[in-house]
Amino acid sequence: MNFEKLDVWKRAARLSADIYKQTSSLRDFGFRDQITRSGLSVPSNIAEGMTRETPKDKRHFITIARSSLAELRTQIYIGIDIGYLPKDKSQYWIKETEELSAMLTGLRNSI
C-alpha cells in the first residue's frame, strides 16, 4: 500500500508541520527539539512501516507511531502548563493525536 494515500499519514504529516511552525520561535531548544521530534516520528514511522515486507514489521512500526503520539500528547500537555503552547491550538492537537491513535489502531488491526 502506498503510504501517501493513507489519511492517517496525511493528517500526521500536517500535524507535524503545524507543530514545527507553531514552535519555531520557542527559545527552549530542548523542549522544541523534543516536541518536533515526536511529532515528526509519527508520519515517518507510518511511512516506514507501510513499506516493510512482512505484516509483523508493518504492525511494529504502526505501534511505534502510536507510541510517538502518546509522547507528543504528553509534551503538548506540559507545553500548555508551562505557557509555551497556546491552549486553543494545543487542544486541537490533543484531539488530533487521539483521533490519529484510533486510526492507527484500526490500521494495525487490518494488517
Rank of each mutant, 00 (worst) to 15 (best):
I46W: 02
I62V: 11
G39H: 02
G106Y: 09
S67L: 13
T105Y: 12
T97C: 07
Y84T: 08
L107N: 03
I94N: 00
A70L: 13
G83H: 10
F61C: 05
A17P: 01
E99V: 13
L15C: 02
I64L: 09
G106F: 08
K10P: 03
K87S: 11
E48R: 06
L6C: 05
K21W: 08
S16F: 01
V8E: 04
T97E: 04
E99F: 06
R108W: 07
G79M: 05
E4I: 10
S110D: 07
S110P: 03
T63E: 12
Q91V: 08
E4N: 11
R52G: 05
D57R: 06
R14S: 13
S101W: 04
G30K: 09
T23N: 04
K5D: 08
R11G: 00
A13T: 14
S38V: 09
Q91D: 14
I78Q: 12
R59T: 11
S67Y: 06
I64P: 02
K5V: 09
V42N: 00
V42C: 03
S24P: 03
I111M: 15
G30D: 09
E4L: 13
A12V: 01
R52C: 10
W9L: 00
E53A: 15
M50A: 06
Y92G: 10
R66K: 13
S24M: 09
D18T: 11
D88M: 07
R14W: 09
R32G: 02
I76L: 06
K56A: 15
I94C: 09
M1R: 12
E71R: 03
L72E: 04
I19W: 04
H60S: 10
I64M: 06
I111V: 15
A47E: 04
R11L: 03
S38Q: 06
K87E: 14
R32H: 03
R66W: 04
T54V: 12
N45G: 06
P86Q: 14
G106C: 07
R27K: 15
I76T: 08
D57I: 14
F3D: 00
L100T: 05
E71W: 01
T54Y: 10
L72G: 03
T23K: 01
R37M: 11
R37I: 11
I35P: 00
Y92S: 11
S44N: 06
F3H: 10
G39Y: 00
I94D: 02
T63A: 13
D33V: 03
R73T: 09
Y92H: 11
A65D: 05
Q34H: 09
D18L: 13
S67R: 10
T74R: 11
T105R: 08
Q22K: 12
M1Y: 09
S25W: 01
D28M: 11
T51I: 14
M50H: 05
I111C: 07
D81H: 12
G83D: 09
G106D: 01
T63L: 08
D88Y: 08
Y77V: 14
E53R: 15
R37H: 09
L72A: 07
A13N: 15
S90Q: 05
I35L: 06
T74N: 10
N45I: 08
E99K: 15
S101K: 02
S101G: 14
G39I: 00
R11N: 08
S41E: 08
A65P: 01
T54L: 15
